[in-house]
């Protein structure tokens, strides 16, 4: 759930706060959980709503940490087993670009992509969670990856 919030709002530090709020909200609202979906899906919905609330309050798209990125992801810079020398740096750079592009997607596309490929929910669950038809979720996932690819490519070709 923390990772979901982090991908939605783009700030690992603030994600802690929002994820904590979501857990507290779930605890308080436990009596309203009717078992119509999986408990984890219900938690995801709460976390997603809290993330959206925050983004609305901010009145802008996710804020990507740049100045502190070095510090936040310093562990990623260490080569993992199986990486070619410098492979960790390449991976970090690639992830950074992807993270940057993800944060620039409109919210309705970003949430589907995060739920589908990062939280690995199936389309039925995504549809239920976002209260949209399954087909709409599929369309959004397809369009979102298209947008993501364009953003990453544009960023890569920028001088």
């Amino acid at each position: 759930m923390h990772d979901l919030v982090c991908r939605m709002i783009g700030d690992p530090m603030e994600a802690d706060d929002i994820a904590q709020e979501a857990f507290v909200k779930a605890y308080v609202s436990l009596k309203h959980f009717r078992g119509e979906s999986r408990f984890s899906t219900w938690l995801c919905r709460i976390a997603l709503n809290r993330s959206k609330d925050l983004l609305r309050r901010r009145g802008r798209e996710p804020w990507i940490r740049t100045a502190n990125d070095e510090e936040l992801h310093i562990a990623d810079a260490v080569d993992k087993e199986g990486d070619a020398p410098g492979g960790a740096l390449e991976r970090r750079e690639r992830e950074g670009r992807l993270h940057w592009a993800l944060a620039r997607l409109p919210m309705k596309y970003r949430e589907v992509l995060v739920l589908r490929h990062i939280e690995e929910l199936d389309f039925r669950e995504i549809g239920r969670l976002l209260k949209i038809p399954e087909g709409t979720a599929k369309v959004r996932a397809f369009r979102a990856r298209e947008m993501l690819r364009t953003l990453v490519e544009d960023e890569g070709t920028r001088p």
Partner: peptide, 20 residues
């Protein structure tokens, strides 16, 4: 699309703070 999906799935997970 397959490559993009794989990249997203393979993104490093952000761990919550130790005092979470």
């Amino acid at each position: 699309h397959q490559r993009t999906a794989a990249l997203l799935t393979g993104l490093t997970r952000h761990a919550p703070s130790p005092t979470f």
